[in-house]
Nucleic acid binder design. Structure first.
Lengths: 228, 228
DNA sequence: ATAATATGATAGCAATACTATTATATTTGC
DNA sequence: GCAAATATAATAGTATTGCTATCATATTAT
């Protein structure tokens, strides 16, 4: 994974930024340290002023890259889903058996990110935590419908689409492939969240992973055995 | 349902308010109109000042009932889950067949609330929409662990517990009853959200309900046929 | 009628979420 | 290597938010 990604750039909707953060040192610092700071203090308390302080830069300079922190969150999460999509396609491309392919996809999507692939200034371990804790805030706003039209969620939607297709390839008669796909994505995050903050609301723990739960759920729903 | 509920009060954690909103006319107005206003403008834009304006009351008076809008949201959503629990217990109490009981429970939990039971100042149709759109904000905060210890989520947790037990009664060997229960609760809301804002991410629509999707999911997962 | 309590009005304060302006670096193009 | 262009920094300012405090005026209870 590592080496290969160095040549790949994840394409983010251009309307999410005023100036491409990948185009300068300051831009990259904004991305790198916003991930750290959001993790530390949470998205609500996070401000451009505090970020400026952290990176020894000025609030006004950050505003030249992003209109506001909401757009920054959309940028970060889009990057995450783009990265996820890349991993998914890369790892499953060569698999022809539909069941095996779906199995692998569920693993990639629902596993915990434990090591930074360190191909860039983006720490995927921390970004994964941000997505677990804050992703829902990016779409539970009054502006969601206009922002959806602007294409701010298109990478995520594409990912759900890919997963839905894989489900249909395993069972063409299954009636809810898209709902099941979105459930895997969303519940994958949610079980990780519960494991951390509400252990009494999940069976996942250090022994049992969200991947196991969801793999069992999906394959039983599709009336398939997991044969290897 | 209607008549009976008039004699029942939903018990909310006392730490969520400074003064019980059920204890006065102003308190009830706060609840009634906060539900309306949050629905109209969204939780982010909602402020006590705006609410005061709506009910012809003063910002400072509202602060005598609730410390802040976050506590108010916790109050409203706790009420919702308490109401849901009441409906669940009431409707399934007399059912002895475990499968039938679970089937009914899934229906109650995942159905759309279409009519106001109008036994009080609380509009359940609007409150259901708030829960769909804003519930995740009540727990995706940096304070979630302390607030959890204070018992602010206890009603929701009890509800997941009840559902998990019902699942185990259908299939005692199933390994993930609690995760499945929390998935039903959470994904029930999420599919409704997707139906409204991201129709391409769900198979649910005017013909297909989240209830159908989740019923199929749960019973297949438990390797059960839905026999009636 | 008086005392207690609830509500309303007003003021004020620190932080947020910006925008605007001007000054100073840094980069680039010739 | 220098001027011009561009990027960043510093400072100031504004409306709004999220409160707290104080005092005045209703309302209710005894």
């Amino acid at each position: 994974m590592d080496r290969l990604l160095q040549g790949v750039q994840i394409r983010i909707n251009e309307k999410l930024y005023l100036k491409d953060p990948e185009s300068s040192g300051l831009g990259k610092k904004i991305i790198e340290f916003s991930i750290q700071l959001i993790n530390e203090i949470g998205f609500e308390s996070f401000t451009f002023k505090k970020l400026g302080l952290q990176i020894g830069s000025n609030e006004s300079s950050i505003y030249r890259y992003f209109e506001n922190k909401h757009k920054l969150l959309l940028y970060l999460t889009s990057w995450y889903w783009g990265w996820m999509e890349y991993q998914l396609v890369f790892a499953t491309n060569s698999i022809s058996n539909p069941k095996e392919k779906l199995l692998k996809s569920i693993l990639i999507i629902t596993r915990e990110i434990k090591e930074d692939s360190s191909f860039s200034h983006i720490n995927e371990v921390l970004l994964n935590k941000i997505v677990i804790n804050e992703y829902s805030k990016s779409y539970t706003t009054k502006e969601v419908d206009t922002e959806n039209k602007e294409g701010f969620y298109s990478i995520y939607k594409r990912l759900v689409g890919r997963l839905g297709e894989m489900i249909s390839l395993v069972d063409a008669d299954y009636q809810y492939p898209t709902s099941l796909a979105s459930t895997i994505l969303e519940n994958g995050l949610h079980q990780h969240f519960l494991k951390e903050h509400f252990p009494s609301l999940t069976d996942c723990n250090n022994q049992v992973t969200p991947t196991q739960f969801l793999t069992h759920l999906v394959f039983n729903t599709l009336n398939q055995k997991i044969d290897e």
